[in-house]
């Protein structure tokens, strides 16, 4: 707080009052992620409250196929790790490695989505669809919102990979990669809770 202001006060002649825009963006994005935590909280609360309202239809616990879920979990976790490797490469100035690790992350993310879509389609075939009951709707909305976040992240990541190819590692692209890597880690954290509350508590 005061330090930031004081720092600028001492930096007379240095773009007085000019603040590092990347620092601002990272803080702003952090706040946005917190608002996203609240968003997921509401979806979690709705899922928990409505999870037993199955209206005589199929029950989630009977339809969960854990092998797929476990695969999704480790794929996403690994992609979170590889996004960290991408940031490491960036900090070492290695743009080609950065782009490669981002590509690996994106591929893993796409695999996650593919598995999740398959999971959903199978459930729908078994009569557990979005419109079946309050419980089923809550499941698909909660898990699906996470999947939507991942999908949008993939598009964003691809866009950044193009920008990196064109412009290399600059202050601006560095800032963008920091932001998206934060986003990606956040999505893995949300998945931890999805796994725990939806799937593990579902089959226990």
């Amino acid at each position: 707080m005061a330090q930031a202001a004081a720092k600028h006060g001492h930096d007379h002649g240095h773009d007085h009052g000019h603040h590092d825009p990347q620092e601002l963006k990272l803080l702003g994005f952090w706040f946005f992620l917190i608002s996203d935590v609240i968003l997921f909280s509401v979806l979690f609360a709705t899922f928990i409250v409505l999870r037993d309202n199955t209206a005589g239809g199929p029950i989630l616990s009977e339809l969960i196929k854990m092998p797929g879920v476990i695969a999704e979990t480790f794929i996403l976790l690994t992609s979170s790790f590889t996004s960290g490797l991408a940031v490491l490469a960036m900090n070492q100035g290695k743009v080609k490695q950065l782009i490669s690790w981002l590509a690996v992350t994106a591929v893993l993310g796409a695999a996650f989505i593919a598995l999740e879509v398959t999971e959903f389609v199978e459930m729908i075939h078994e009569g557990f669809s979005y419109t079946t009951s309050a419980a089923s709707g809550a499941f698909f909305t909660l898990v699906g919102t996470h999947g939507l976040h991942v999908s949008l992240g993939l598009i964003w990541m691809i866009g950044l990979m193009f920008q990196l190819k064109k412009r290399g590692i600059t202050d601006v692209t560095r800032g963008k990669i920091n932001v998206i890597s934060l986003y990606w880690h956040f999505l893995d954290v949300v998945w931890i809770f999805l796994l725990s509350i939806v799937y593990l508590m579902g089959v226990m």
Binding site: I34, S41, T46, I48, V49
Partner: peptide, 18 residues
């Protein structure tokens, strides 16, 4: 700070709703 407050609100939303 924002995270801690956010987690507190998250608990309020989930536990309060339940």
């Amino acid at each position: 700070m924002a995270l801690i407050f956010g987690l507190l609100i998250m608990m309020t939303i989930v536990i309060g709703s339940i």
